[in-house]
Amino acid sequence: MSEQRTFRVWRGDKDGGEFATYETKVDPGMVVLDVIHRIQAEQANDLAVRWNCKAGKCGSCSMEINGKPRLSCMTRMNVFAPGETITLQPVKTFPLIRDLVTDVSWNYEQNQRVRPFKPKPRGADGKMRMYQEDVDRVQEFRKCIECYLCQNVCHVLRDRDGKAAFTGPRFLLRLASLEMHPLDDDDRIPEIKDEFGSGMCNITKCCTDVCPEHIKITDNAIIPLKERVVDRYYDPLKKLFRVFTGSK
């Protein structure tokens, strides 16, 4: 049965804005993005919202719904209490373009900073081999849809002005997928520590909490990277061992 619901939607641009209230009919099975489209069609033709797939796979429709970073196309209306007012905001961490749309290009710049896969030399038979169980680990990371909800929720980027020192969980994830790859030949540990700022993360796991692909970002990517950084830089016995053996 359809019901009348109240939505507060942030309307504005870089010069400022305010919440506008819309009452609209919600049908069973609708997701938040459906409701936004209905408001757009019936009451606010100029309401800006970014979306593409409506299937949780393109990562375009990220926003904050009742204060929680979520994909609007994957947030079903029946998760809210009956009669609850629903507040929609753009993500906080990236500059607002208009209404619910932000400029996430900082993330693409981060992506370009990551050196691409550098394959190891081929084996004697001219082939390159890797084994499924060795790449299972990094395959999890490839589920990422680049919605940047993790980048948005990470307090280092969101509330600490940390963008100069920290690349954010999404790109530590990408770095982990290369660093742990059995056929990648690059040494990425020094820059993971110094340029990408693995030490800025305090492993509070909000990235993991919001990831719509349920990637265990902190446990499976960031902490293992931190442990590799410890191996190289902070483990006193390993350091001593390297001094005596002259190894890297």
């Binding site: 509330d159 002005d161 909000c206």
Partner: peptide, 16 residues
């Protein structure tokens, strides 16, 4: 998550 840190210092250094 998505809550403003209580000690919102600009000098946040993480675990560095």
């Amino acid at each position: 998550c998505a809550v403003v840190p209580t000690a919102k210092s600009r000098r946040y250094k993480g675990e560095t």
